[in-house]
């Protein structure tokens, strides 16, 4: 799997630069300055956005699952995603004419606040029962989500919210995706502490015995998770699937040593989102299918195949 993913990634990247509503051939780059313009303003940002979103979501999903010691928790459901939605909703309701950047800023702040709130909530939990952490995170996320639905329902904004939140890459242009670099930065930090997070996954006692500052590593990890979730939700919308399924498949194949697994997770997540986006551009051209819908369909088919081929081999 690793080798296939590493080969696929550059191929998809190059492909992504040339596929789209306005067709572009590599030869044009030599003669046509507008072709360069198109790449710089639209195609490159879009490609980078897909790569970064895929990689960062997959990696933070794996981090969160290791920290929570539960394979079925996902960043989107742990409060950050819902908080971001709440931020957008409140701005739209209170200041209807607010510019897009104000909404984005508000959503980021709300998402971070939501994650900090979660950190405070889980701090007093007894360490002897680690399963309480994901449980509290889920309930917390659910409560905020219910609040979002409550507000949206009152304001008759459910469909607006759904459109806003459904993951899409077609609107990505230069100047509209740069927040994702923050997500990439946060993910890079997790790579630096990958070994420590792996140790934490072995259990709190083992980690302490090895001289790890448990609280600090947990806070760093969760911080990265919330930054990534917030930035992705704010710039692209909710991208399902990647944070949950990619890490699960990678860890079934590669094990849970994050230092080894994270690069594969990142590459697989990036390739998946980019591939889905390219497919979404091609299938019904000149119309585009949103990447979240494509992920649901392509991703499902792909992952079921991998999952069952894997199991058949054991």
């Amino acid at each position: 799997m690793p080798r296939l993913v590493y080969v696929l990634l550059p191929v998809l990247t190059v492909l992504s630069l040339f596929v789209g509503t306005v067709p572009l051939r590599p030869a044009q780059l030599l003669q046509d300055p507008e072709a360069w313009q198109l790449i710089a303003v639209s195609r490159l940002p879009r490609t980078l956005a897909a790569l970064m979103a895929g990689a960062t979501l997959a990696v933070t999903g794996q981090i969160l699952q290791t920290l929570a010691r539960n394979r079925f928790i996902e960043p989107m459901t742990a409060g950050a995603g819902q908080s971001a939605a709440l931020g957008v909703l409140l701005v739209t309701l209170l200041v209807p004419g607010a510019p897009v950047w104000a909404k984005m800023a508000m959503a980021s702040v709300a998402a971070l606040a939501g994650s900090i709130g979660l950190l405070f909530l889980i701090r007093p939990l007894p360490p002897s029962q680690p399963l309480l952490v994901p449980l509290v995170a889920l309930v917390y996320g659910g409560v905020i989500g219910a609040g979002v639905t409550f507000v949206a329902y009152q304001g008759d904004m459910l469909q607006y919210l759904q459109v806003w939140l459904s993951g899409e890459l077609s609107g990505v242009l230069r100047g509209r995706y740069e927040l994702l670099w923050l997500a990439a930065l946060a993910t890079a930090v997790t790579w630096l502490i990958a070994d420590r997070i792996t140790l934490l996954g072995l259990g709190e006692k083992t980690a302490r015995g090895l001289g790890l500052s448990v609280a600090q590593v947990t806070a760093l990890g969760l911080g990265a998770v919330s930054v990534v979730t917030a930035m992705c939700v704010v710039t692209l919308g909710a991208i399902p699937f990647v944070g949950l399924v990619v890490p699960n498949l990678v860890s079934r194949r590669m094990g849970d040593n994050l230092r080894e697994a994270l690069p594969v997770t990142a590459a697989a997540g990036a390739a998946l989102v980019l591939g889905a986006d390219i497919a979404g551009r091609v299938i019904r051209a000149p119309f585009e299918i949103p990447v979240s819908a494509m992920l649901g369909v392509i991703g499902a088919a792909l992952f079921l195949t991998v999952l069952y081929k894997d199991s058949a081999r054991d």
């Binding site: 394979r71 079925f72 759904q162 459109v163 459904s166 399902p240 699937f241 949950l244 399924v245 699960n248 299918i289 949103p290 979240s292 819908a293 494509m294 992920l295 649901g296 369909v297 991703g299 499902a300 992952f303 079921l304 999952l307 199991s311």
Partner: peptide
Amino acid sequence: GDMVRLVLTGIVLGLLIRALTTFLQR
């Protein structure tokens, strides 16, 4: 009976169904 695989499959299919739903709703 690999329960992890069962749950993962369920999640994947659930996401597939949600994607189709969103698609239709649009």
